[in-house]
């Protein structure tokens, strides 16, 4: 497998020159294995990826969506293949009980928020909602999705192809004290919530178990941590990578305002902390990693 980063910034796109070395687009990455391409998340990074896909002539497109917060879907209306004939786009996510994935996407493109509705686009767009823990195939790539602790219905993914594997664990509060995820069954009492917190931690660790790379929400530094925002710190990501015995740790979903100089120095500092146990990288727009 080969992964390419098209958007690595969390919350909203940033455009200051001091931050463009790592990149300002909101989350989007591409994974390719034996001719099959999978896109993860549809932040503004998907705009440039869409043009590359059209240039390649690719007409079957699969998108795995972690969740439907703005920064993970806001690029979709600007995704060039949506406006091309003979194009099929399938969007996967975890199951939404209250409001379907399709309704959420239709809302994003309805008047008067966006001038082109999903009924008017040329591509055929399908939505598939998966059960927590379900494994499905996209071409030769085996995909497993699991719920994570983040407000709303959010999930991470594990992708496997041959001997290689990667885990996308974003957005998530890995070790926080509050149960933030919505629509979980039996989660009203504090004992049940405590139980779920443990369960969701295990799910994150299972996704990353001995993966070649764990791509992890590292929005916070430890002293910036806020318990109800649903994000993790770089230290949390390091701990998860250790617990999961993964081969490498990628910082992802950088906080807006975190500039290139700071990310350079964080990458150095956490490489030292990992002590050669595993690789540490700050994700960067345009970065390609072969597994």
């Amino acid at each position: 497998m080969k992964m390419t980063f098209w958007g690595v910034r969390g919350s909203f796109p940033v455009t200051a020159l001091s931050q463009l070395g790592y990149g300002g687009n909101t989350p989007c990455m591409e994974v390719e294995a034996s001719g099959q391409t999978v896109i993860i998340d549809a932040g503004t990074g998907i705009r440039a990826l869409g043009r590359a896909i059209v240039d390649r002539g690719q007409q079957d497109i699969e998108i795995l969506l972690s969740h439907t917060h703005w920064d993970h879907i806001q690029g979709f209306p600007h995704f060039d293949p949506l406006y091309r004939d003979h194009t099929r786009i399938t969007i996967h996510s975890l199951k939404h009980e209250q409001r379907s994935l399709m309704e959420i996407f239709r809302e994003q493109q309805r008047s008067p928020f966006f001038p082109v509705s999903l009924d008017e686009v040329k591509a055929e767009v399908q939505f598939v909602e998966h059960e927590d823990g379900e494994t499905f195939a996209v071409g030769d790539i085996s995909v497993t999705s699991r719920r994570l602790n983040h407000p709303g219905v959010a999930g991470g993914y594990r992708l496997e192809h041959g001997d290689s594997s990667l885990a996308y664990i974003c957005d998530v509060d890995l070790y926080g004290p509050l149960l933030l995820a919505h629509e979980l069954p039996d989660s009203s009492t504090s004992d049940q919530q405590e139980h779920w917190l443990g369960q969701l931690r295990n799910r994150a660790r299972d996704l990353g178990h001995r993966a070649d790379w764990v791509i992890c929400d590292t929005f916070f530094l430890p002293d910036e941590y806020v318990p109800d925002w649903g994000h993790s710190s770089i230290d949390d990501g390091l701990q998860l990578t250790r617990e999961a015995e993964a081969g490498g740790f990628v910082f992802f979903h950088h906080r807006p305002g975190r500039d290139d100089t700071e990310l350079d120095s964080l990458q150095r500092r956490y490489r030292d902390e990992a002590g050669g146990e595993f690789d540490v990288l700050a994700s960067k727009e345009g970065l390609e990693i072969s597994l």
Partner: peptide
């Protein structure tokens, strides 16, 4: 506002928890 939606409904729509953290 726009059509059947008041400005308040539209701005609340943006803050809906499905979209907005």
């Amino acid at each position: 506002g726009n059509g059947g939606d008041s400005l308040e409904q539209l701005l609340l729509g943006q803050m809906d928890s499905a979209f907005c953290p």
